[in-house]
Design a protein around this nucleic acid. Structure first.
Lengths: 208, 208
DNA sequence: CAGCCTATTGACCCGCTGGTCAAGTTTGGA
DNA sequence: TCCAAACTTGACCAGCGGGTCAATAGGCTG
């Protein structure tokens, strides 16, 4: 019931912990958090139940770990996605494409957070990120509006929600097999879709 | 463990059943299906636990009942939404606006189906509808493409997914309070968003 | 009133699952 | 070589929660 104050892990320890984390990711993604039993995770990871509680305080704390570690990775990847020397619409495009690719690569993770969004006990952990991503996006959009590339009588916040939503739901459809597009095609299509929706259409591409 | 072969209900019986159904809707929507206990539902409805099993075979069967009855209502409402004598883009607009309004009116229901989409045991019931809605939408889009109102080098199916996704995720943001727009404003905005994204922009409105 | 069906209760059952623990093994470093 | 800490196990526990049931009340029909 404690463990938090920095337990020193050996190489083997770190490996085992990751092993459990991986097993949990797979199971959470396919059955959801609630429906996944600690025993299942241990079986999947091939370790005894007690070991779970050597590395994690609780099932919920493992979940938090999972989310946070993934978020770190996501943020890093996204950071490198947009070239600051280009114009905002180009950056928006690039950001959207990168996000789509990233989400496709980490399908299991995103299907997890998507499904567990309404879980009362998990809400805090889940919502603590995400606003950051929104802020990033909104910044680009406002910049584009200032540069006259996007009509500025539309609410920037709504446009932001639209972009984020579009990326996430197209990826969701991709995960569910509702579309069989390749990731490249998808990324391109979604970029086109959002640029058009946002009102920055230069009429050059309609993606697909 | 049976009950299905048409139990005859008195007026009072029907009322009680609905009462339990309503209680379940509220709780499912706010905590999710898994996290809601049968005892909670009974407490909310103000009846004893045994009564639950007088009217329903199981928690899962209540859920199925809920979904099916709601779907019926939804389909009826949507049927009346679009005026067949207008052009496809106008109909698309109208359909989107009507859907947004409907989803806002039935927020509890949609937040429920949205959150429980990944639940293994519930998937069959959940997915048995939904394709119908997609088919309706796609028909309008294809029609618009034939009429030259939407560029036809874009994949109609992808555009359909985009429309459906946009409606559902904007409504989701509305439910979560991520936007404080009124339902009317929202409906208008989403209609504008989708029309632009789909490539049918007549440059008259950018919503908001 | 008698018989039957619906309606309603709450105590009870039992399997499941998150979490604990005492006991044992391995590893690392002094 | 030896100690302590990291690691690993599986049996065990307690409470929770879905589902059951016997008992009772009430209402309709003959």
């Amino acid at each position: 019931m404690e463990s938090s104050p920095e337990r020193r892990l050996t190489d083997q320890g770190r490996e085992r912990k990751q092993q459990i984390l991986d097993a949990a990711t797979v199971l959470f993604a396919s059955r959801g958090y609630q429906a996944t039993r600690v025993a299942d995770i241990c079986a999947e990871a091939g370790v005894a139940k007690g070991l779970f509680y050597w590395y994690f305080d609780s099932k919920e704390s493992l979940f938090a770990d999972l989310i946070r570690s993934m978020r770190l990775q996501l943020r890093r990847t996204q950071g490198a996605a947009m070239d600051p020397s280009t114009d905002p619409v180009t950056r928006l495009r690039a950001g959207v494409e990168a996000s789509v690719r990233f989400m496709a690569d980490h399908a299991a993770y995103f299907s997890l957070i998507e499904s567990e969004r309404t879980d009362e006990s998990l809400r805090p952990v889940l919502s603590e990120g995400g606003e950051i991503y929104a802020a990033d996006t909104q910044r680009v959009i406002v910049e584009a509006q200032r540069a006259g590339l996007i009509p500025d009588y539309a609410d920037a916040q709504m446009l932001t929600l639209g972009v984020i939503g579009a990326v996430s739901h197209f990826c969701q459809f991709h995960r569910n097999g509702r579309t069989t597009m390749s990731v490249d095609e998808l990324a391109n299509f979604v970029a086109g879709w959002t640029v058009r929706a946002v009102g920055a259409d230069d009429r050059i591409t309609l993606g697909g």
